[in-house]
């Protein structure tokens, strides 16, 4: 389908793009560069974390960009990390863009690898390329892309370098035209055994709506905040079903 003649993703039904990344990666600059002044901020439901959303048009399609809080990790060490994690696994954005600081790739890789374990539609955006050049840092993005199994785009958001290419890559992925094979870390045999044992139970509980391997890993780590979120989701869904008039007597509620 040609999106220009038949705008499937119009203002009313835009693609949803999430920006994840460490603090100080120029993520907000990228967000500003993409969305200009079409932004609004509010709160994430029930959290004192600022929720920033903006939008842009590209090639006839509308995109909503969610600027996730800058975090070093998604292992729920803070409310910020919980918000970012929940957005990626429960709201399942059409594309999750991980913004990396080109001058601190190794540290930033920590978050990128975590996101790759949580989602399939991921783009790595190596930002601050202008700073990296000044510091004599060279990054082989082709090799990186091959190793990690997702597209890698270099940008310098504040000079608007690479933005067009980033938008193009996002578009391709949003339309499902990009095949990815996200890098999944292999742990020790002992841990891998546990993961696959648990993975099955996760799939039988949540189907394929959640990344089973990742949830299994987090549960093995005893991630209490994720457990709480899972409970909440199920409760929320129960209420939704209830409100929409499904006969609940068919599904006796347990005590």
């Amino acid at each position: 389908m040609n999106p220009r003649t038949n705008p499937k993703h119009s203002q009313k039904n835009p693609f949803r793009i999430a920006l994840a990344g460490n603090p100080n990666t120029g993520k907000s600059t990228l967000f500003n560069a993409l969305t200009g002044l079409r932004q609004h901020t509010g709160n994430w439901p029930g959290k004192t974390v600022i929720h920033a959303e903006g939008s842009y048009q590209y090639d006839g399609d509308a995109y909503t960009v969610i600027d996730l809080p800058g975090t070093y990790s998604l292992y729920s060490n803070s409310a910020d990390e919980e918000v970012a994690r929940d957005c990626i696994i429960f709201e399942k954005p059409d594309v999750t863009v991980v913004v990396l600081d080109a001058t601190a790739m190794e540290r930033n890789m920590n978050l990128a690898l975590q996101v790759l374990e949580m989602a399939d539609r991921v783009v790595l955006c190596i930002n601050l390329m202008d700073e990296a050049k000044k510091k004599g840092i060279y990054i082989n993005e082709k090799s990186l892309s091959k190793k990690l199994g997702v597209p890698v785009v270099k940008t310098s958001a504040r000079n608007r370098d690479g933005l067009d290419r980033l938008q193009k890559v996002i578009q391709e992925m949003a339309y499902g035209r990009t095949k990815t094979n996200p890098y999944r870390i292999r742990y020790s045999d002992e841990l891998e055994e546990k993961i696959s044992a648990l993975e099955e139970s996760v799939t039988s509980t949540f189907g394929d709506r959640l990344p089973a391997r990742w949830v299994a890993l987090r549960l093995l780590d005893g991630d209490q905040s994720l457990i709480d979120s899972l409970h909440q989701r199920i409760e929320l869904h129960r209420k939704e079903v209830h409100n929409h008039g499904v006969d609940e007597s068919l599904y006796p509620v347990e005590a």
Binding site: Y72, S73, S78, R107, N110
Partner: peptide, 11 residues
């Protein structure tokens, strides 16, 4: 606890 995890994340 959290601080250990944060420090691990930071390298």
């Amino acid at each position: 606890g959290t601080m250990r995890r944060r420090l691990l994340d930071l390298g």
